[in-house]
């Protein structure tokens, strides 16, 4: 069974090879982004449950519980919401 990505209470499928941002975009969810490289912070979101791994160093300042969607991936079910 494919993993789930829950964003703002809506359920989507999760492709572990894609970043969370790409996952949302491929399912027609428009999410704010600028650099797509982890340094501008435009895609900061809240991690409600689950874990992320970063494909590149997340340079933008993250407060407790915040993640960057553009450079993170997840292999298991994950719940996030916009700030």
């Amino acid at each position: 069974m494919p993993s789930k990505l829950i964003y703002n209470d809506q359920q989507y499928t999760l492709d572990a090879d894609k970043t969370l941002l790409e996952n949302l975009e491929s399912q027609a969810v428009s999410v704010e982004f600028h650099c797509r490289d982890g340094h501008c912070g435009a895609c900061r979101s809240m991690l409600v449950s689950g874990d992320v791994t970063y494909s590149s160093f997340p340079m933008a300042y993250l407060k407790e519980g915040e993640i960057l969607l553009c450079c993170s991936k997840s292999e298991k079910n994950i719940t996030i919401k916009s700030l």
Binding site: S30, E32, F33, C35, R36, D37, C40, A42
Partner: peptide
Amino acid sequence: SNPIPWINHWLVSD
């Protein structure tokens, strides 16, 4: 929401 969403594509770094 962003009134000029097209700007984001100019701001992608890679």
